[in-house]
Computed example of a mutant assay.
Amino acid sequence: MQLETYISDLLYRYECVTIPEFGTFLTQRASAAIDDATNTFYPPKKTVSFNEQIQKNDGLLAHYIADVEKIPFEVANEKIAKRVNSIKSYLTQGETITFKNIGDITFNSEGKILFEPAYSLNYLTDSFGLSQLVSPTVSREVYKTEVEAIEKVIPLTVTPEKRKARPYFKYAAVALIALTVGGLVSSKYYVEQIEQHNQLAQEKAFQQLDAKIEQATFNLNPLPAITLNVTKQSGNYHVVAGAFRVEDNCESIISELKAQGFNARTIGANKYGLHEVVYGSYETAEEALIILRDVRKNQNEDAWLLVKDLDAVTE
């Protein structure tokens, strides 16, 4: 039994997944981060940890295995217990147990569990499609030395003695103030003329539009009624096939999935501007996870589960 596969499926949806009589995998949301030393940008993610103190069976893992494999709940618990005994046996022999896409578990010298998380998979569904980004170093030129050298050659300071020796500075300042005031007055007048012109043009356009609408109202011919058979999808659990920057690309993917028998559709753009295409939407998490498991096993290992309340979308 590939226990790590079932655990990995559940980590997308839940913050903790317990292996009875062994321990619990915990997830915690981590914000986006920047490594100043390497200029690397990391997207938001879920960090995974392990706590061997939490071993009480909450039934989550066993229920999921029972639903996927179509076996009784008690048989699923027996399979988990058998797998746990095998894991403990390998650990006591000094071997490392690898949970794919989750991390490695070993025993230390004191017989305590050490967990080293793997970072190959981001369990935060909001960050789907985002990866780390390395930015090139920004080079900044410093001009302070050049400016100091220029000031030594061309003094920029006007001292009181220089103002007395050059009285035309005073008249130049007066002229500058006069030009500024005159420019402001003429600019204000010009802006008022433009606004008045735009207002008249807008009123004229509205009059022409009203006339055309009135004329079109009397020339409309009644159209035959059309009856549409509309099928609505509902449910807050969506199995996502992919997200696309260009919305037109969604149509071909939806056509392919419908040809394979899925009730595929697009559920709009997420907060990153990516248009999401789903295999289908489902009322319960159990139903959606069963479909997700089958899709990832047979068709698309990158498919993921989105839990989101959406308005019903007609197809």
Rank of each mutant, 00 (worst) to 15 (best):
F262E: 00
E276C: 03
F25P: 15
V230Y: 01
L11N: 00
A30K: 15
P20S: 14
Y123V: 01
I80K: 05
L200T: 05
E247A: 15
T266N: 12
V158M: 02
R163C: 10
Y14M: 07
T159V: 05
A241D: 02
G261H: 03
E74H: 08
A225P: 05
T125I: 12
Y6A: 03
T96D: 04
G23L: 02
E276W: 01
T38S: 14
K212L: 04
T106L: 08
V142C: 15
G59K: 02
K297S: 11
D58S: 12
P20L: 12
S89Q: 14
I177M: 05
F73I: 13
S255P: 09
P72D: 15
A165E: 09
A173V: 04
V313I: 10
K112Y: 13
K271A: 06
P43N: 03
V153R: 01
E4Q: 03
R265H: 07
T266P: 04
I105V: 03
Q93L: 14
E203D: 15
L292F: 02
G182W: 08
R163G: 06
A225N: 03
N108L: 01
V246Y: 11
A175H: 13
E192H: 08
A118D: 07
V191R: 11
F22G: 00
D104H: 06
Q208I: 10
V307L: 05
A259T: 03
G242V: 10
L61S: 11
R163M: 14
A201T: 12
C250H: 01
L209W: 01
A81F: 04
K112R: 12
V75C: 05
G23C: 06
N270I: 06
A303W: 05
S127L: 06
E116Y: 09
E161H: 03
N57Q: 09
S109W: 06
L228N: 07
Y168N: 13
L156K: 12
V75F: 03
D67N: 12
I65Q: 00
A33S: 07
L26W: 01
L176N: 14
V75H: 07
Q299D: 08
E161L: 10
K271F: 06
A30R: 15
Y14K: 11
N270W: 06
N249F: 03
Q233I: 08
P72H: 15
K88E: 02
Q233T: 11
N108I: 04
F244V: 06
A269S: 13
P20W: 01
E151I: 14
D67G: 07
D294M: 03
V142M: 15
P224R: 00
Q93P: 04
A288G: 09
T137A: 12
H63S: 14
K204R: 12
E4L: 00
I34C: 10
T159Y: 07
A288H: 01
N263L: 05
Y171R: 15
S89N: 15
A288D: 08
L310T: 04
P20T: 02
G103C: 04
L257M: 01
